[in-house]
Design a protein around this nucleic acid. Structure first.
Length: 424
RNA sequence: GGAGAGAUGGCUGAGUGGUCGAAAGCGCUCCCCUGCUAAGGGAGUAAGGGCUAAUACCCCUUCGAGGGUUCGAAUCCCUCUCUCUCCGCCA
């Protein structure tokens, strides 16, 4: 959520910023509604104040044994007027809130302009696209030939966009997760979290997934709905909800491994083959809670932590800064890490690292006490995949494949696989 | 699933219709006192919102959540949620 105060004071600037995303913000309509809110709120609070003082007077008169009947008739119709004002105010505030919850975050100035993915700016490249010396197979062919990926079995059980993996390949995904968790906790100082995979509405409003993106989520049919998490970001970031961190408690660095569930509505026809885009996938997620002035530096740090995983796996990748048209709803700035996939001869997203600044914090009421002023202020939240395990598995398979269809186990993973060197 | 108890400020805990945003204690901050320490004395110490140039006044809201009764609700009524204890069940 954008600061409503800033919104009403600088609606034109907000509109200009959001226009970079291609988001049309009707500043005039908003300001008109805001003007109405102001009038109603002042009127309502005046009436409340009046009610409070007359109630107090009645109490006082009664205590002194005076006749309170005339006082009661004087305030008789006030209740109705107040109720009217209150409900009108509530209505307008609800409308404003609906608009505010729908607005994406303001973009950081450093975000490059652009329309879509093709305008993203390459920031750095690590390694070189793998030269195999033979015609590369993609992970589907590799997995099926090894008999360790079974899309048919998955579809029999659950339909499309699911995978069944077997034996050493299943183990390799687990090994990747272990490597990531161990690296982030032992080398990067993160605290590991185990969190719920089902969350309620408020948590998703806090991170910005609701109310706008309900169709992306799986929801249970229970009386109070639960949602399957689309990313660990949702439960982990919500750890900060309704809290005030004391001086010295920040920054917080959390890492969590969870499965992620996405309906992939609207992505029909994209990556339909293989396990690039699944309804269910495994991911290790990094989350930072920091003071406002530290978040831009934290974004660099967090991205670097994710990169270390690919470096350990010796997988070629590049980092791109998402352009204004491609940055996600709640993010002020995002780096994507893209890993080289020989099967596609392309870099593909394997991690997305974002600075949400105070966007989620405002929705969640996540604050810190500023040691200088003693006052609570909103923290900044960041998150990034460190990294997506399913896609990391694909990357290992395709980059470490041999001509005979076997797959070498990266050195960094061998300790997690009982010393296994080749999957065949 | 059954039975019972409870939810108040950073914490403990009082408060059953009126000057209660809330006693008291603890904690914390500042000041005084003491050669230092300990002890002691004094003052302060919730969050959100509105108005505003203002983090100054002033005003509003909030005692688990949502409704209701009332001129007035932490206090009375209804619904819900959560926590704890005991029993049952269970990985």
């Amino acid at each position: 959520m954008i600061d409503p105060k800033y919104l009403r004071q600088s609606a034109a600037e907000v509109a200009a910023n959001l226009a970079r995303r291609g988001y049309p913000f009707d500043a005039e309509a908003y300001l008109a509604l805001e003007e109405r809110r102001k009038t109603l709120q002042i009127e309502t609070e005046d009436l409340q104040s009046e009610r409070n003082s007359s109630a107090k007077n009645i109490g006082k008169a009664k205590a002194e044994g005076e006749d309170i009947a005339p006082l009661l008739t004087a305030v008789k119709d006030m209740g109705d007027r107040l109720a009217e004002c209150e409900s009108a105010l509530q209505e307008v505030q609800g409308q404003l809130r609906d608009i505010e919850l729908d607005l994406p975050n303001l973009l950081d100035d450093s975000v490059p302009d652009g329309k879509d993915e093709s305008d993203n700016a390459e920031v750095r490249v690590w390694g070189e696209p793998t030269e195999l010396g033979f015609e590369p197979r993609d992970h589907i062919e590799l997995g099926e030939n090894l008999g360790m990926i079974d899309f048919e079995a998955a579809s029999k059980i659950s339909g499309s966009r699911f995978t069944v993996m077997s034996g050493p390949l299943a183990r390799m995904q687990r090994a990747l997760i272990q490597l990531m968790l161990d690296t982030h906790t032992e080398e990067h100082g993160y605290e590991e979290k185990y969190v719920p995979y089902l969350v309620q509405t408020d948590a998703l409003i806090g991170t910005g997934n609701l109310p706008k993106f309900e169709e992306d989520l799986f929801r249970t049919a229970t009386e109070t709905p639960y949602y399957l998490i689309p990313t660990a970001e949702v439960p982990v970031t919500n750890l900060a909800r309704d809290t005030i961190f004391e001086a010295g408690e920040l920054p917080k660095h959390y890492v969590a491994h969870t499965p992620c569930f996405r309906s992939e509505a609207g992505s029909y026809g994209q990556d339909t083959r293989g396990m690039i885009r699944q309804h269910q996938f495994e991911k290790v997620e990094l989350v930072h809670f920091v003071a406002a002035e530290e978040s831009m530096a934290a974004l660099e740090t967090l991205t670097g932590h994710a990169e270390v995983i690919l470096q350990k796996l010796e997988l070629p990748y590049r980092v791109v800064a998402l352009c204004s048209g491609d940055v996600g709803f709640g993010s002020a700035k995002t780096y994507d890490i893209e890993v080289w996939l020989p099967g596609q001869q392309k870099y593909r997203e394997i991690s997305s690292c974002s600075n949400y600044n105070d966007f989620q914090a405002r929705r969640m009421k996540a604050r810190r006490r500023n040691p200088e002023t003693g006052k609570p202020e909103l923290i900044h939240t960041l998150n990034g995949s460190g990294v997506a395990a399913g896609r990391a598995l694909i990357a290992v398979m395709e980059n470490y494949q041999n001509d005979d269809g076997s797959i070498r186990v990266p050195a960094a993973l061998q300790p997690y696989m009982g010393g296994l060197k080749v999957i065949s």
